[in-house]
Design a protein around this nucleic acid. Structure first.
Lengths: 193, 193
DNA sequence: CCAAGATGGTACCGGACAGTACCAACAACT
DNA sequence: AGTTGTTGGTACTGTCCGGTACCATCTTGG
């Protein structure tokens, strides 16, 4: 089949579809764990199309990671918002959401941190920093509204707990890791008042 | 130059020297970030020697990771022991030691976790689990001696904090991450009594 | 002094991978 | 209808990497 299938030809739409399709694949296999040819086959596009849209494999990876960071942060903000107005409840809701993620069979740790660890040099410089900073901003806002004495400190501590829980859940497959992290996060927030 | 240089021919000694020499190199560049030829050149050995000793690149990596895990755990045990008998002091000493590590320019996160993240499949299955379990045992012993109500929970939480601090320090280069983690660890231990 | 084992050097093989070129087919706008 | 632009298919290139083979050289132990 030569061109667009049922849908109209639209480069932006093609690009978005490719990013959405390839995101879970790159997450599952790792950036160096899957070749460009396999990615193209999975996305149903030719290599030429991929390189016209993204310039290089690194360009594709950066686009995928950017969208993933956006999606994850939106998801956590939604989880917090849906838990009412109490900062502690919102914090608990975030860790409950993470617990569900950790339990998924496809869970492989934090995609952005994994990518940064794998691709030392070249791949997505700054994406990881921005991602973690946004995480920290989310926690800082919660700490501020909870009335913490040192919101920056608490935000860093909560970021540490989240990233640690992610790593431990991934490496050790401890089912209780998220619950322990949630307990720790609430204790740290409480201790900061 | 053909054979052993100044030292006597001794396969075990050669193997140990190779592991010690290549450990920092594999840590710095990542497992897939440096080729076997470069490793041999750096170690001053031929490819044939490397493959006779380790069988494959994965075999070399596993040997390096095993030794690194041993070294790190010994180092932390020593830091704890050197801080006296108070469990809280020992915990603080561990995080102070980590703080020094995080500040090193060569710091690249946890080598074992990095390797596990990079080499999905084939590379060192189980090394990461064992490493984190040993970490957790160290913390559990501290929690027990401190009189925590639930030493297993505290051990998991402290493991989460350590791994999180390592990731955050690596990705974000936050100088205060270790101090925040130390503060969090002590608060969690205190809250568990 | 000689046999056996450990080693370094080098060249090589096969495969995988990122990236490119060329072409035919199809859609959208005029 | 035709022109322009987007796409899929395929073949190809150059490169790098893990791993193997062969050989000369040196130490070690008898």
């Amino acid at each position: 089949m030569p061109v667009a299938r049922g849908e109209t030809i639209d480069p932006a739409r093609t690009r978005a579809r490719v990013v959405a399709t390839l995101e879970p694949l790159l997450y599952e296999h790792g950036i160096d764990g899957i070749g460009v040819s396999a990615l193209c086959e999975a996305a149903g596009i030719s290599k030429e199309t991929l390189y016209r849209h993204f310039g290089s494999k690194d360009g594709l990876v950066e686009a995928v990671l950017q969208q993933r960071s956006d999606r994850v942060l939106q998801w956590l903000h939604a989880a917090a918002s849906g838990a009412g107005d109490d900062p502690a409840d919102q914090l608990a809701a975030i860790f409950d959401a993470l617990d569900g993620w950790y339990a998924e069979p496809a869970f492989r740790g934090c995609a952005i941190v994994n990518a940064s660890t794998q691709g030392r040099g070249g791949t997505a410089p700054g994406v990881a920093e921005i991602h973690l900073d946004r995480y920290r901003d989310l926690f800082r806002a919660i700490a501020v509204r909870a009335g913490s004495r040192d919101p920056d400190l608490v935000a860093t501590q909560l970021l540490v707990v989240v990233e640690g829980a992610t790593v431990v859940s991934d490496q050790l497959r401890l089912p209780g890791a998220a619950a322990a992290a949630k307990d720790a996060a609430l204790a740290l927030l409480r201790a900061s008042l």
